[in-house]
Structure formats: C-alpha cells, structure tokens
C-alpha cells in the first residue's frame, strides 16, 4: 500500500465485468459503473416497494420514509414547476432518488460514484433538456420561441438579445451536468487526498503517525460534508429540472 504512489483519481477507473465486445467500433461492457447503477435502482425500488406493498392507514417506519420522500418531491414539483407539471412528477422523482441514492452508495468503501463521470450526468441533463424542448414545442407550438424573445425589448436591441438568450438556453444542460459532476468528482478527490496524507504520514514513523491525526480529522469531517453535498446536489438537480419544466410549460418570462 505504501509503496504504491497514492492516486486520488484511481477510484474513478472503469473496470469491465462482462465485456460484450466491440459493436460498431465502440466498446461495450457491463462495468463497475453499470453495476452501481443497477444496485442503485434495486435499492430505490426496495426502499419504495417493499414497505408499501401492504399499504396501511397508520404507516410503518418504512412506509413513512417512502411517503415522506414522495411528499417532499411532490411539493417541490408543485411549488417550483406549477401544478401543470405534475405529469412530470415520475421523472423528477426518479432523477432525484437515483442521484441521491447513487451519491450515497458512492460514499461506501470500495464503491463507485456514478455521478463522478460526466457522461452519466450529461445523459441525465440532456434527457431533461430534450424533454423540455420536445414537450415545450408540443404544448406551445411556435409560442415556445417566446422563451428567446423577452417582452418589452426595443427592436434595435432584439437582434442582439435573441442570440444571447439562445446561447443561455443551450448552456442549461452543460451547467446542469457540470454542477453535479464537478461536485462529486472534486469532493471525492479531496477526500482521497486527505486519506492519502494519512497513509503517507503514518508510514514515516512515530512522529508522522501523530501528525497524521490532523488529515484524519479532515477526512472524517469531509466525509460528513460529502454526504451533505451528495444530498444537496440531488436536490439541486431535481429543482433545476422543475425550473426548466416550468419554462417548457410557460414560455415567456
């Protein structure tokens, strides 16, 4: 352990478990990332389905957790995106629980943080973006373009404002995915750096072992912070999804 150089980004490596071979030049395999996603879906399904299988008027503990989670996301969708957006509640609920549980599962030792790869968060953000665009056009038709033309702008400014608004709109999936990915990646790297300091100092000698208490304390504190960040980022991702859905339903600021 001590001979190996400490690599803070080693934890993000993808390993193939079941390779499917190359299809059309692209490499397909069942990886550790995919395994964690499957486990996440199983955990979420288990938490929600098992306690609510036999619904009781006075809820059990498990049923209460499921109901509270449900109510929390429902209030978020209703207050942020409006009542018309409730048909997207399953989407927001799925995104929220998936990100939340995968972030928290990623905190376990020897686990893998799914959201630390930008392709995962980008896929989720692009999914939301495409739903907003497609549903926005389906519901509002060409009125959806009002999103890019703020009202009350003089004609000589409008040709400058519209491209800016379009770029601003197109930047949504980028910032949407960057935020979750950046938070998870940076947090786990910092955690590993402090963990590496503990190992490095402890291998020096008795004095080093005493000094290693300092980074160990930081690692403990950062672990708590990472749990908080994981929950917070799942919440922020879901809230922003609601905000974007609100724009799809009510274009025009």
């Amino acid at each position: 352990m001590a001979e190996k150089p400490i690599e803070p980004i080693h934890q993000f490596q993808i390993h193939d478990y079941v390779p499917f071979g190359d299809i059309g030049g692209a490499h397909f395999a069942f990886t550790n990332s995919a395994l964690l996603m499957v486990i996440t879906v199983l955990v979420v399904s288990g938490i929600l389905l098992i306690p609510t299988a036999a619904q009781r008027l006075v809820p059990t503990r498990g049923q209460l957790i499921a109901e509270q989670l449900f109510g929390f996301v429902r209030d978020m969708v209703e207050s942020t995106a409006g009542h018309d957006a409730m048909k997207f509640f399953p989407l927001v609920f799925t995104l929220f629980t998936f990100i939340l549980v995968s972030n928290w599962l990623g905190m376990l030792p020897y686990s893998f943080t799914v959201a630390s790869h930008i392709i995962v968060t980008a896929c989720l953000a692009v999914l939301v973006f495409l739903i907003v665009v497609i549903y926005g056009f389906a519901r509002n038709g060409l009125k959806f373009f009002k999103l890019f033309v703020p009202s009350g702008i003089p004609w000589f400014i409008i040709w400058l404002v519209v491209p800016i608004e379009i770029i601003s709109f197109l930047s949504r999936p980028v910032s949407h995915s960057l935020r979750l990915w950046g938070n998870m990646l940076a947090g786990h790297i910092v955690l590993k750096v402090f963990g590496g300091m503990v190992v490095g100092l402890a291998s020096v000698g008795a004095l080093g072992a005493v000094a290693a208490i300092l980074p160990l304390g930081m690692a403990v504190a950062l672990t708590g912070l990472e749990v908080l960040v994981g929950g917070l980022q799942a919440f922020v991702f879901a809230v922003l999804t609601c905000v974007y859905l609100h724009d799809a339903i009510h274009p025009g600021h």
Binding site: S79, T80, V236
Partner: peptide
C-alpha cells in the same frame, strides 16, 4: 403557486458560488 425563485434558497454559500460559476462557464 409557481415560484421558480425557490432555487438556491436553502443551499449553502459554497454551493451558490459553484452554481453561479458553472452557469457562467457553461454559457
């Protein structure tokens, strides 16, 4: 009541800063 202004109301300062930075860089 539609209030998209709810975003960020309950989040920490560092998270707000990161949010603003990522929005700027993304554009």
């Amino acid at each position: 009541v539609a209030q998209p202004a709810d975003v960020g109301g309950t989040v920490s300062g560092a998270n707000r800063a990161f949010r603003l930075a990522s929005e700027f860089v993304a554009a």
